[in-house]
């Protein structure tokens, strides 16, 4: 019970201190808007292109929102040594890191609904399979956040966190089948596509909105969950190894 008081307060503090700050809210809105607009214009197919573009824009919004804020806030607190306060709290490290990541997960999920709300004005959303879409968004947010945690633990400076994030994010966007089908990617790059969590998230998003899935959906979900567990476990191991030296 006492540990949960700490959990909720770390989450609430992060929302107050970081996620609900006007620059982050506007960034969370403008970024998905810009991506949607860019692909909408680029497709040249007008409103008909919205269902095919929506999975990509949802994924981009979640990925960028979750990874950016988590990696930056954790690096910022580590640099200012306020993160030491959290490490000194008598709560399990697992719960502490879940508390730190919960805000970014929720922020990522909230970001996903910006393009969905916009799409509601342009297409009929009744065909969307919400039962698979919502869990996919949540799992993409979790895996993206844990990727951000992995990045935060690997760097020392805030600017390194941003640079290192892009090193993962941009290749992932173009290799995961969101904007180009994986079959169109050079064959030697295709194994890399299947090593990325977003590939499985993108498959569920496409299947939930406009086309059949490439893999069985259950398999997509299982692989996403495995990625989440592995990224979290690896980040925790790095926190213990690098921050409690």
């Amino acid at each position: 019970m006492k540990a949960w008081i700490a959990f909720w307060n770390i989450l609430a503090k992060d929302f107050r201190a970081y996620y609900l700050k006007p620059p982050n809210i506007s960034w969370g809105l403008i970024f998905p808007l810009a991506w949607t607009g860019m692909f909408f214009i680029r497709s040249g197919e007008g409103v008909d292109s919205v269902p095919t573009l929506l999975p990509g824009v949802i994924a981009v919004s979640v990925l960028f929102g979750a990874t950016s804020l988590l990696s930056v806030t954790v690096t910022f607190e580590k640099k200012g040594r306020s993160f030491e306060r959290l490490l000194l709290a008598p709560i399990p490290l697992e719960l502490l890191m879940l508390a730190k990541t919960a805000g970014a997960i929720l922020f990522g999920v909230a970001n996903a609904f910006v393009p969905i709300i916009m799409a509601a004005f342009l297409m009929d959303l009744s065909g969307i399979n919400w039962a698979t879409l919502i869990p996919a968004i949540v799992l993409i947010a979790i895996s993206s956040t844990f990727l951000g945690l992995f990045i935060a633990v690997s760097v020392n400076e805030v600017f390194e966190a941003q640079t290192f994030s892009n090193f993962f994010r941009f290749p992932m966007l173009f290799l995961c089948g969101l904007f180009f089908p994986i079959e169109q990617i050079p064959i030697w790059l295709q194994p890399l596509s299947y090593a990325l969590p977003l590939t499985y998230g993108a498959d569920v998003l496409h299947a939930s909105i406009h086309r059949p899935a490439n893999l069985p959906l259950a398999l997509d979900f299982v692989i996403l969950v495995v990625f989440c567990i592995l990224l979290f476990a690896f980040s925790l191991r790095n926190v213990r190894r690098k921050w409690i030296t």
Partner: peptide
């Protein structure tokens, strides 16, 4: 190493919460 963006009162209250204080 407290949080610069929180007030003095909020910093203390937050630190108390880390130890499970209501």
């Amino acid at each position: 190493n407290l949080y610069p963006e929180l007030t003095g009162f909020d910093n203390l209250s937050f630190c108390g919460s880390l130890y499970g204080m209501t």
